[in-house]
Amino acid sequence: MNLFRLVADLMHLVSIFILLLKMQKTRSVAGRCSRISFKTQALYATVFLTRYTDLFANFQSLYNTTMKVFFIASSLYIVFLMKFKFKATNDPRLDTFKAQYVVGGAAALALIVNYAFTVQEVLWTFSIYLEAVAILPQLFMLTKTGEAEVITTHYLFALGTYRGLYLVNWIYRYWTEYYVDWIVWIAGAVQTGLYCDFFYIYFTKVLKGAKFELP
């Protein structure tokens, strides 16, 4: 564990707490201009469920196991909240990204490009590819509405920072322990790249007190 990865993981936790806070505070997932994509959240739940199939078999540390349990539980809780508790305020007409294509694409790629052709390994690879594109429905929704509430942009900023710090962590690990993981690296680079446009607007507008609005 290094500082980059620790802070990255903490930013990931922060993003989840921001999301839960926002949902509890507004008692809805669809306050004006602040929509959270159900598809993105459902994809994240799928990512954690397929990645942590080794939860009981592969013990790394108490930290690792606790985080895995938290990610699975919180993602399922968020999906539950959106699907049942705040269902009336979740507007599927804005959540129109074709998620089935990215699920299908990630599944097909996981079957072809993986480290070993076993059920667990393919599921793990699928989760890596799917995580890379899971934010797309949310970003697509943002593009469609053209603006976002500040708290939603903080959520995306925390998520983007978590991914960016993982890139730094991999460079650090390569030099310090000769750690190599091409599947994770390429998927991670793609995932971080998706945040570039968002980061640009976040830094130039939101941090200067302006509303998040697409040009």
Partner: peptide, 10 residues
């Protein structure tokens, strides 16, 4: 020799 991926990351 590169270390095989260890799956110690989240």
């Amino acid at each position: 020799e590169p270390v095989k991926h260890k799956k110690d990351e989240l």
